[in-house]
Design a protein around this nucleic acid. Sequence first.
DNA 1: TTGTAAGCGTTATCAC
DNA 2: GTGATAACGCTTACAA
Lengths: 343, 343
Amino acid sequence: MTQQKSINIKALAANLNLSVTTVSRVLNGKAKQFRIKEETEIKVREAAREMNYLPNQFARGLKLDRSETIGIIVPDISNPFFADMVKIIEKQLREKGFAILIGDSNENTEQEAEMIGLFESRKVDGLIVAPVGLQFDHLIRSYGKGLHMVIIDRWQTGLGIPSVSSDNFQAAFDAVSLLIENGHRSIACIQGLNDSQTNRERVAGFLEAIRKFDIPENNCPIIGDNFSIDNGYKSAIQLFNQSKYPTAILALNNRISLGVLQATAERNIVIPDQLSLISFDEQAYSAYLNTPMTTIEQDKYRIGQEAVAILLNQIDHVDAQARKELVKIPTKINLRKSVAMFE
Amino acid sequence: MTQQKSINIKALAANLNLSVTTVSRVLNGKAKQFRIKEETEIKVREAAREMNYLPNQFARGLKLDRSETIGIIVPDISNPFFADMVKIIEKQLREKGFAILIGDSNENTEQEAEMIGLFESRKVDGLIVAPVGLQFDHLIRSYGKGLHMVIIDRWQTGLGIPSVSSDNFQAAFDAVSLLIENGHRSIACIQGLNDSQTNRERVAGFLEAIRKFDIPENNCPIIGDNFSIDNGYKSAIQLFNQSKYPTAILALNNRISLGVLQATAERNIVIPDQLSLISFDEQAYSAYLNTPMTTIEQDKYRIGQEAVAILLNQIDHVDAQARKELVKIPTKINLRKSVAMFE
DNA sequence: TTGTAAGCGTTATCAC
DNA sequence: GTGATAACGCTTACAA
């Protein structure tokens, strides 16, 4: 069975004894502008609905050089953070009539670049991309060629491409301040991929808080090297093997804190009695753990909203000069039982 | 800044002093077929790469009535099950050269139907859809019109549309059998949306196991009415309020079991000492909970693989008659510490 | 071995 | 108020 040709504007016009021009005008909302009889307009609209007319977007796109389609590329859609981002962005764009092409780069820069080609040849009107984040030249090149683009989450300084990201520095700073205000004087940071911008900022916020409150840095180890469960587990075990381990841990993402939980269960360390824990990334389960976890939650909704707004601005040629290079979105802390007053 | 026109086949041909025909043939891999000089072929390929030629898919699609694009519609991409499905399907289809249009129906049938229109006008070559699952006529209509389609997860009997789904009956049957073999004689089932096919099958499997082992049905309450955390929580509390509550719970999805966890924490019920628990849906956190949870894991990879295979078959007009209406994919149990020998 | 030209379904320009 | 027609960039039947 082959896809049945759906009706086209020519057939629709023939059916109505009208020219394609008139039909096209009505269907594009230009009836007033061309002073088309109201009677005609109604006839056209009704027939279109009845005959289930759907404009062929190939023909439309070819003529208008516009697809009403936006591409989204994320490094891993099975990561709930990105899945949520996609959901939010898809909804907003669909409400504006756009369709969404999705790409999962699988944390692979080469695939990311390939996808951009795939999307360019499908003439996307713009691109929202959460890059792998280690190389950016292909992005810069496409943006330079005139492809409308917004980067979310994993930006980098000096890219020249509009970006939207959480205020990771402030988030870490606030979380650590909270721990300190609760009496903690020895706080460990289990970090992720060292040369990602995200990690750098979170670590910087951690350190800044330590310094501001004059906590000896020696009491506050920064360990770990990637964003995996395993790294969280191993780093925690490493801490627990010391005679006097820190009274609190800041985990720089949700995988790391899962690893920490595994380690505490194994060592029978009770949270928060023997260890306080704050983790980046609110998750569906965060509130339902044995000890509900205090988390740093990113405002995905606002990140998506800003990204969409900036992209549509680019597409509409508006505000070309007023664009900020980086929009920082504040985070919030979900205070739960995994943080206790120490001493 | 407007999107810079990328080079077209005409310009490319002019640059090479060749006709567009020849260039088109080379680029479509028909060089042999038309006995184009190898020298010419190489020249063309090099120039295309150098000048960064990308075929305009509007023009191509208009001519060929084919988009090399597949639509995927899911009811909620923030649900990790569907996010994983999308990841798997996207990868497989991209490897075959397809781009993916994504739609999130937000558990709303009307939006689902609207999206199908959006995708049809973009001339998707086919559709993989996990429907909301309460109404199917719009799907049947589109499929009847010749839109290639595969349904995953939430199928229904008698649809006439090829479907791929986990063997929910067998999964529940196996899980309950396991509990019974571990000495449990009073097992509760906390169910989800009552009139969804998925729920029906899982409950049927639960009952079948109970009967097969001659467990009194009175000892095995089936309660709950939707797939939410809250329903899991309330149902569990309802059970715990009885003087003698069941020794084991089967939770029909991951949200429900989160609610159960919340209730056990609140009531200081220790898993598995006082209660065994098996939950549908393996999750990232399942293995890292205080008591690692025994889960029923769906084989998303195989579901995706089968769905893609069936869809591509439809598109290639192959095997039109050999198609099965429903492919059932076996599940597996991840045995962890939340199930204990009772007595 | 390569080229010419028609046609896919729209929209926009110009004409009436 | 409405219509005829060129053009968008590609593939392909037919020519050479």
